[in-house]
Design a protein around this nucleic acid. Structure first.
Length: 152
DNA sequence: GCCAACGTTGGC
DNA sequence: GCCAACGTTGGC
């Protein structure tokens, strides 16, 4: 059982969208490190902090969990998609994804607030220059975030 | 829109 | 294998 923080642009897939859909395919990851986390390390039932990025108020917006193993991201084959990758073929897909089940929406734990909590200071998403859209979260960090989400 | 930081590409 | 140039991310 592991924990992850996964960034999504709410204009594309918000926590509300994910809750309405039940589960969402985490398409569009085009970074090898993030892909490898999904392909090699994620397990069914892993906990996910659903993070809104590239928006007015970036931060953790909900809780989710991994609900599939990794499989090819179909958008890499779609020439009309923003995520099309001409190097990928059906036989040798480059990009993988998992499905994520939204569990609940939480209060927004903003990036600015996250930076004020010493117990979160080591979270990878807070490190200078960090841009990775999927990062592992330690058990202690997971528990600290959940505790903060339960506070007003 | 700006820009710092990082990742990828491609010439050599 | 090096590294400069370019592209992308993402907060502000």
């Amino acid at each position: 059982m592991a924990y992850w923080l996964m960034k999504s642009e709410p204009d594309e897939v918000s926590i509300d969208d994910a809750l309405a859909a039940g589960s969402v395919p985490w398409f569009g990851v085009r970074n090898y490190q993030a892909r490898n986390f999904m392909r090699d390390q994620m397990q069914l039932g892993d906990g996910v902090l659903f993070y809104h990025s590239s928006c007015a108020e970036p931060g953790i917006a909900g809780i989710a969990e991994v609900c599939s193993s990794a499989y090819p991201d179909h958008t890499q084959f779609d020439a009309a998609s923003h995520y099309y990758d001409p190097k990928s073929t059906q036989e040798t897909p480059c990009w993988m994804m998992v499905d994520v089940q939204a569990i609940r929406k939480t209060r927004l734990l903003s990036l600015a607030e996250m930076r004020t909590h010493a117990e979160l200071a080591d979270m990878l998403v807070l490190q200078k220059g960090s841009r990775l859209s999927i990062t592992p979260v330690s058990t202690a960090e997971w528990q600290a975030v959940l505790a903060l989400l339960d506070q007003p």
